[in-house]
């Protein structure tokens, strides 16, 4: 690399950052690309361009940038964070979830324990929900297929019965009136069986089961949401890691007892985490049906790009 290129790349990058802050993502992308031509060894240039491309919804290119950035810097929280968002956008929730978990892991292991944990935590939940949605859609489709098959075979039996009766009427084995009565009976019989079948399917649908409430012991006392990475404090209470850290950064005391408490004293609560995961698996998507819409995405990403 000719001398001076690294400097030139930095200049282009900060121009790109300015455009990004002003919401001109197209120009930001161009400037980052020029910076990469000057210096292709800086992983930050790739993550910055990925962030601009996220805004421009160029998902495939976001993925390329993130992977190249990870090649240059393995423990790359931002790259995994953007990667997960692009993967979820192109409907690859499994890959998105592993990327998001990677970002979360890197975030909690980092010395700063930055407020990104809460943002990434929300993304993890979103990926889990997307993954569940796909599974659920398949399940409904399979159920619908099965129901349709069973209904069709009931109908085939009914039609066969009717045509039997008709041929017996034609052959003079039964009178017209009796035959018509018999046909009416078969029809009522068929309709009842079909309704019973539909009822049975409706009853077995988890959608119709039980009261939808997350038990209090799985809910974080700060966000009121089901926990995904609970940590336990000295007094035995558990909280979601990301939110408790937010509190401890401002006020290093136990939220309940007000005794001194530091981030280093927190321990993961693995059994509770498993219980939360199991509950989410069993109760499927409705657990996640929280109001995503109210979160202002732009401000959430904004503080990440200033890293």
């Amino acid at each position: 690399m000719p001398p001076g290129n690294e400097y030139a790349a930095e200049q282009l990058k900060s121009q790109g950052n300015t455009h990004f802050k002003n919401g001109d993502y197209g120009s930001a992308e161009t400037l980052y690309s020029q910076a990469i031509q000057k210096n292709s060894k800086n992983p930050l240039l790739f993550t910055n361009r990925a962030n601009a491309r996220l805004k421009l919804e160029k998902w495939e290119e976001v993925i390329d940038d993130c992977l190249r950035s990870v090649e240059l810097l393995k423990e790359n929280m931002k790259a995994y964070f953007y990667l997960a968002q692009a993967q979820i956008a192109i409907n690859h929730p499994n890959e998105a979830l592993s990327s998001a978990l990677m970002a979360y892991d890197l975030c909690t292991r980092s010395a700063q324990q930055t407020s990104n944990a809460a943002t990434i935590s929300a993304l993890v939940l979103k990926c889990k929900k997307a993954k569940w949605d796909i599974r659920e859609r398949d399940r409904i489709r399979r159920r619908a297929d099965l129901l349709a098959d069973l209904e069709a075979s009931l109908e085939v039996t009914y039609k066969k019965d009717v045509s039997d009766i008709e041929s017996r009427i034609e052959a003079g084995d039964v009178g017209k009136v009796e035959g018509a009565e018999e046909k009416g009976e078969r029809r009522r019989d068929w309709e009842k069986r079909r309704d019973d079948l539909r009822t049975a399917f409706a009853l077995s649908d988890p959608e119709n089961l039980g009261k939808r409430e997350v038990p209090d012991f799985l809910v974080d006392g700060i966000t009121f949401e089901i926990m995904h990475d609970p940590v336990v404090t000295k007094n035995g209470r558990s909280y979601e890691r990301a939110t408790l850290i937010e509190h401890l950064k401002r006020n290093p005391t136990d939220p309940l007892t007000r005794e001194p408490l530091t981030i280093a004293e927190l321990r993961p609560n693995i059994s509770l985490k498993d219980a939360c995961t199991e509950f989410m698996e069993e109760n499927k998507g409705w657990v996640y049906d929280c109001e995503d819409g109210e979160v202002d995405h732009d401000t959430r990403w904004a503080h990440l790009s200033s890293l």
């Binding site: 407020s115 809460a118 943002t119 700060i222 966000t223 009121f224 949401e225 939110t243 929280c290 109001e291 109210e294 979160v295 959430r300």
Partner: peptide, 11 residues
């Protein structure tokens, strides 16, 4: 960041 979510649950 999570104010609106938490408040909607409280509500």
């Amino acid at each position: 960041m999570f104010a609106s979510k938490r408040l909607s649950k409280e509500l």
